[in-house]
Simulated assay, not measured.
Amino acid sequence: MIGSRFVALACFFAFTAISAPPQHAAVKSAVSLTPAVVEAGSPELIVISTPNAKSISSEWLGKKIEFFQRGETWIALAGVDVEGAVGPSTLQISVQLANGGPLDLSQTIEIHPAHYRTGALTVQPKFVEPGPEEQKVIAADADLKVKAFATSAPEPLWHGSFRAPVLAQPTDSFGTRRMFNGKLASIHKGMDFRAPKGTVVRASNSGVVVLARPLYYEGNCVIIDHGLGLYTVSMHFSQIDVHEGQQVATGDKLGLSGATGRVTGPHLHWAVRWEGAYLDPGKLLRLNLDAIR
């Protein structure tokens, strides 16, 4: 349903026009979000069609949104964290016109709650109450992840729609409140695929590998930077076949699925992160981005 709303680049120019303020009465612009109904955890394709724009500055939910240009169309992939607050929010958009001053296209965006379930899992006790030595490893891992997410490419590295990383059945586990050994540990911020050990894991889109190594909770982990603050994170590999700094294209082999780290059995955990916000991978996969090249 999401993809049907965005099937070709021509659709960019079909959105309802918004009249500019009096000082720019001749300028007509359109702003669109897909999916149109914004939920907590939702990735959002933001498209602005405006002539004579030299640059766009934007902020939403305390995060800066970076747009890239295709003709008279400006595009961004952003989103709302799975634990984000619901209710009205302000999407601030300021367009700097080539032949004039700024044009304000700010909008009020209603964020709706998403309904997730609660699940119970049993894992090794060291993954629920890690000891002092494990705590040192976890702290070192946290530093590695901060560095991996610190600097994203200043342009989009992805091309077209994102693809599932494995040929396996996904679960509806994103957003699940997870109880480990009877204790509430976290909200599940990724999608799990029922991938037997040794299933080939592929890059869901093009980008640069910024982390490829074992971590305490994640097991063997691969993080790919897709540019402009967007990352995908794959966990629990039995084997990693890429290295940090490597450029990958959509479909390139990253490694083999497994059961390393905090798991109950072999599977692939796949997460989508934008500017620190974790987004629903299933909704990203349903976004039709093939018109954007």
Rank of each mutant, 00 (worst) to 15 (best):
I109A: 03
E110Q: 15
I111P: 02
I111V: 14
I111G: 01
H115P: 04
H115M: 05
Y116C: 09
R117W: 03
R117S: 05
R117C: 05
T118K: 15
G119W: 09
G119A: 15
A120T: 15
L121T: 12
L121Q: 07
T122S: 12
V123E: 09
Q124V: 02
Q124W: 09
K126N: 14
K126D: 09
F127P: 00
E129D: 12
P130H: 11
G131T: 13
G131L: 11
P132I: 04
P132L: 07
P132M: 03
P132D: 13
E133I: 03
E133Y: 03
A140F: 07
A140Q: 13
D141H: 05
A142C: 02
D143K: 14
D143A: 15
D143G: 10
L144P: 01
V146P: 02
K147G: 07
F149E: 13
F149I: 10
A150R: 14
A150G: 10
A150W: 08
A150C: 12
T151K: 13
T151C: 05
T151L: 10
T151A: 13
A153E: 11
P154K: 04
E155G: 06
W158N: 00
H159C: 11
H159L: 15
G160E: 00
G160R: 13
S161I: 11
S161M: 12
S161W: 09
A164K: 06
A164E: 00
A164F: 10
P165Y: 09
V166Q: 03
L167R: 15
P170V: 00
T171E: 08
T171C: 09
D172H: 14
S173H: 00
F174N: 02
F174W: 14
G175W: 10
T176N: 11
T176G: 04
R177L: 15
R177K: 14
R178V: 13
R178S: 08
M179Y: 12
M179C: 14
N181C: 04
N181E: 10
G182L: 10
K183Q: 13
L184P: 08
I187G: 12
H188L: 08
H188E: 11
K189D: 11
M191R: 13
M191F: 07
D192T: 02
D192Y: 00
F193Q: 02
F193H: 07
F193R: 04
R194A: 05
A195I: 10
K197G: 00
K197V: 03
G198R: 09
G198F: 06
V200A: 11
V200I: 11
V201D: 02
V201C: 06
V201N: 01
V201S: 06
R202I: 15
R202E: 10
A203S: 15
A203Y: 05
S204G: 15
S204P: 08
S204L: 11
N205T: 09
N205Q: 05
N205I: 04
S206L: 00
G207H: 01
V209E: 01
V209K: 06
V209Y: 00
V209P: 03
V209F: 07
V210L: 11
V210R: 02
L211Q: 05
